[in-house]
Design a protein around this nucleic acid. Sequence first.
DNA 1: CTAACGTACAACCAAATGGTTGTAGAAACA
DNA 2: TGTTTCTACAACCATTTGGTTGTACGTTAG
Lengths: 126, 126
Amino acid sequence: MVVETLTNDEIDRIFHALADATRRDIVQRVIHEEQSVSTLARAYDVSFAAVQKHVAVLERAHLITKQRHGREQIVHSDMGTLGRAERLLRQYQDLWAGRASRMDALLAEDDETTTQNDPPSKGPTP
Amino acid sequence: MVVETLTNDEIDRIFHALADATRRDIVQRVIHEEQSVSTLARAYDVSFAAVQKHVAVLERAHLITKQRHGREQIVHSDMGTLGRAERLLRQYQDLWAGRASRMDALLAEDDETTTQNDPPSKGPTP
DNA sequence: CTAACGTACAACCAAATGGTTGTAGAAACA
DNA sequence: TGTTTCTACAACCATTTGGTTGTACGTTAG
């Protein structure tokens, strides 16, 4: 499928998590270096609880994971999810570029026709 | 520079627009074939006004554009924006993959012309 | 001309979002 | 020990979101 192994809900959570500058910045920070939640919180102008919520949103999207270390919760990135999101966007672009026919074949699940390009299916109303 | 010309607000809007399955489906449809808003609306189980709002969200994110044709409003995709979003995600992955040095240089002074994604509030490394 | 269609937009509503403060518990430190 | 630090979570609030319905207006078809 065009959505790989991701469900719609998972994609929703990923893009929603990335639709906030603070959360994107958190992702960037922990990509660069794993940090505790309180260390992250000190970097922003909002309360600790607010940062905690941002981290929770990123965690629900599987963009980061937390690992307890003593009394601290260490946040580190989960690049696999980011990669899947990037690949999803790339697939849209591939569809837009010339590969539309092949993608259509995949989506339509019929590979018998060897015709390479033409507008075959008009309305795939799901 | 390699840097995109996207502001934080624009990135917010792009990812927010993509964080909804109906809107992603609209993007897919109009990538495949340009369609009027009412044609799109017939494909979903919600009201015409709801689809109109979804289209407006996508338009605000510059993922699609509308073009009047008689009494119809034809929706077509704007792949450039999608490409910029995909490249942004890939930059995160490049950062993770080890090309950190160049990204670090970018991130260190990200408030100037870069506008790729600047930290929302406080300084980067206090 | 009249009717139907496609669109725009306002008003309204329930639920989610993003923020706050406050309280409480577990771990580290003096 | 007692205190500070880090985390978790509840309660609350304002704003946004995603949906509805209703109305109005331009355009096309009969």
